[in-house]
């Protein structure tokens, strides 16, 4: 479930992934929080048909899933893999999603807005993501009537999304900025220019493994292109700052950094009990070690994958049985040992 993550662009070690999300609503039907069961089914049918039936050019690329028909564990797996958002699970009998075969595109139905489509790509690829998302948006619009206002643009349930309905975000790995305690300054600067920083799983989630999600805060009054350019520009600057911090760490104490990353690798390869939090911390160290060419025996894609498959639902899935938190920690250690062999 992490196909979108595989990355052959090694130059973007600091950037894990880019995401483009568009919020859309249908005209003449109340927003999701104000609809009844019947409206919900009408919306699901309309969106589903717009993609799958008719002569839509993408009908063969997508599959529809109803949340109701997915068991609890698999729902969590989808969230941990970033294919759907936690909010989509709030009313399972009323929501569903369409997923592309390559798992890079998902179209969520009856989340906070009637339609939330997202394109996920590995590395820094906001423009490609936007092109694809905009094309899918056009195809949907051929068969649907969107709520649109000449002044306010695309109408959304929450005023923070109105206008373009676009949230572009980039997931970056910033261990050196965290170690040098420079991160707060960077984050402060970022928020002053209308961007926002969130944890790994979006709004209200914790920062784990030094992974930060940087995205645009405002959606009204700028074109999609301007929003993306601004975000990309800032991300490139943050990458430079992270690189500079890594250089500084290496020049002032190379042996300390080597010690740190190899210790972390050693613990990952040998431990028998591992919490999710500890795993993320150690994986972050190893990831930086690979990126700095200190660790050569491990593939960075393997670490990217582990950052997702060591999350609780993924570990439970691996264990193939219901687990309590202690059993999960044991299984997690086993899963990691299997994936990073000595």
């Amino acid at each position: 479930m992490v196909n979108w993550l595989s990355n052959d662009k090694s130059e973007h070690g600091i950037v894990l992934s880019s995401r483009i999300r568009l919020a859309r609503n249908l005209e003449d039907i109340n927003f999701t929080q104000k609809i009844n069961e019947n409206d919900a089914q009408i919306i699901i049918e309309q969106v589903k048909n717009a993609v799958l039936n008719n002569n839509s050019t993408i009908s063969n690329d997508f599959k529809f899933f109803k949340i109701d028909n997915i068991d609890t564990l698999n729902r969590k797996l989808l969230v941990e893999s970033h294919l759907i958002s936690p909010a989509l699970l709030e009313k399972p009998e009323r929501s569903g999603f369409l997923l592309s075969k390559d798992e890079k595109v998902s179209i969520m139905i009856n989340e906070e807005d009637h339609i939330r489509m997202q394109v996920l790509n590995a590395g820094l690829s906001l423009e490609e993501g936007w092109d694809l998302c905009s094309k899918i948006d056009d195809i949907l619009e051929e068969n649907l009537k969107y709520a649109f206002d000449e002044k306010f643009g695309y109408i959304t349930s929450c005023p923070t999304n109105v206008g373009t309905g676009l949230r572009a975000s980039v997931m970056v790995h910033l261990p050196a900025l965290v170690y040098t305690k420079y991160i707060n300054k960077v984050l402060q600067a970022v928020s002053q220019i209308g961007l926002t920083v969130r944890g790994m799983y979006g709004e209200g989630t914790d920062v784990m493994g030094n992974l930060f999600q940087i995205s645009n805060q405002t959606t009204l009054g700028e074109t999609e292109y301007e929003i993306i350019e601004k975000l990309k520009n800032i991300v490139l600057q943050i990458i430079d700052k992270e690189k500079a911090s890594r250089e500084r760490l290496l020049s002032t104490g190379r042996i300390h950094i080597e010690d740190k990353v190899f210790r972390s690798l050693g613990i990952l390869q040998n431990s028998r009990i591992m919490s999710s939090k500890e795993a993320m911390k150690l994986l972050s160290d190893v990831r930086m070690g690979i990126d700095l060419d200190i660790i050569k025996s491990v593939d960075i894609n393997q670490i990217n994958k582990l950052m997702i498959i060591t999350q609780p639902a993924n570990v439970e899935n691996y264990a193939e049985t219901k687990t309590n938190s202690y059993e999960r920690d044991v299984k997690r250690a086993e899963l990691i040992r299997e994936n990073i062999k000595i």
Binding site: E27, E141, E142, E150, Y154, T218, L220, T223
Partner: peptide, 29 residues
């Protein structure tokens, strides 16, 4: 958006710094 237009306008300015859309326009709507 029409019912509360007067109240929302200053709010949009506060949130976004702007109050009018300039981006993509759907073909049909």
């Amino acid at each position: 958006y029409k019912s509360f237009n007067q109240k929302l306008n200053p709010l949009f300015k506060r949130i976004h710094g702007h109050d009018s859309h300039v981006g993509k326009v759907p073909k049909k709507a």
